[in-house]
């Protein structure tokens, strides 16, 4: 029983990070109907920037701030410079462009920071908490991870549901031409959507960095897990992305704990294929076909 609880706790922690990556993908999918295959590379770059801040003697929080700020900027720049020219072109163009960006960013990171992974400090101790004499697979840092992701989710929900800007973001995503006639600057909304998504991604990067280390290829799996979580939730649903992330996190934790940690990636693929076969629109999507 303790083992099950521990695996669940570990699953929730990693699931929170998957959820953040999934949310980054969903935000971009909703705004521009593009699956951003460069998301993993983008959060790798911002995490490297955070690592550089720490390496230069900056505090953890300064580094986190640098990662979030650079994520915001990187997202906006990528939308303006790389994605904007292929908008309204066949979907495949955007897919190829983001894949190309992924390769470019990975190569650039290798040139700037080298290929050797660097360690990244956690914000708090990763020593598990002890309850009634039993050690749990839940450390203060894990709590911070869950709390940080939850805070971002709440902030984003408030932004989208409670503010005029959020309404415009949604309107621009649903029907850009009509939104334009209502006075919405659709281009700006798309840029902001990408910036917000990259911000969430950069948070995920910093949170996962202590366990995967910081290197050009260290975050590739995050894209796979995040994408799986997003598909489980239905690519259109931010709430689904969060639930999908948590479900995937727990499922992979059980696979790793009860079967073998070698099978984790295969477990993610199995989950992805199962969902695509049983509910191709995801567990939370309303309906409607889509092409990726």
């Amino acid at each position: 029983m303790v083992r099950f609880i521990n695996l669940t706790l570990a699953g929730i922690t990693s699931g929170a990070v998957f959820a953040a990556v999934a949310l980054a993908l969903v935000l971009i999918w909703r705004a521009t109907r593009v699956v951003n295959f460069a998301q993993g590379a983008m959060l790798m770059i911002t995490t490297f920037i955070a690592w550089s801040v720490i390496d230069a003697g900056g505090s953890y929080w300064l580094a986190l701030g640098a990662a979030l700020a650079s994520g915001l900027v990187l997202g906006a720049v990528v939308e303006r410079v790389v994605v904007r020219p292929v908008e309204n072109k066949p979907h495949l163009n955007a897919v190829i462009v983001t894949l190309g960006l992924f390769v470019v960013l990975q190569a650039a990171a290798g040139m700037i920071w080298g290929d050797t992974p660097h360690s990244y400090p956690p914000a708090f101790t990763i020593r598990g908490l002890s309850v009634a004499g039993t050690w749990l697979l839940l450390s203060p840092f894990d709590l911070f991870v869950i709390g940080a992701v939850a805070a971002v989710m709440v902030a984003l929900t408030l932004l989208f549901v409670r503010t005029d800007l959020g309404l415009k973001l949604r309107a621009a995503a649903f029907a850009p031409e009509i939104a334009r006639l209502q006075g919405v600057r659709v281009g700006r909304m798309l840029t902001l959507g990408w910036a917000l998504a990259a911000l969430v991604g950069s948070l995920a990067g910093v949170l996962v960095a202590p366990s995967v280390f910081v290197g050009p290829t260290q975050f590739d799996a995050m894209l796979v897990f995040g994408f799986t979580a997003a598909v489980i939730g239905g690519l259109d649903s931010p709430a689904g992305a969060v639930v999908g992330g948590l479900l995937l996190g727990c499922a992979l934790s059980y696979v790793s704990g009860y079967v073998s940690s070698d099978l984790v990636t295969m477990g993610a693929l199995a989950a992805l294929i199962t969902v695509l076969m049983v509910r191709p629109n995801g567990l939370f999507a309303a309906s409607g076909g889509r092409r990726v």
Binding site: L167, R170, A171, F174, A175, A179
Partner: peptide, 10 residues
């Protein structure tokens, strides 16, 4: 030309 994903009020 209504946004189907938003409520009437929105």
């Amino acid at each position: 030309g209504l946004f189907q994903g938003l409520t009437v009020l929105e």
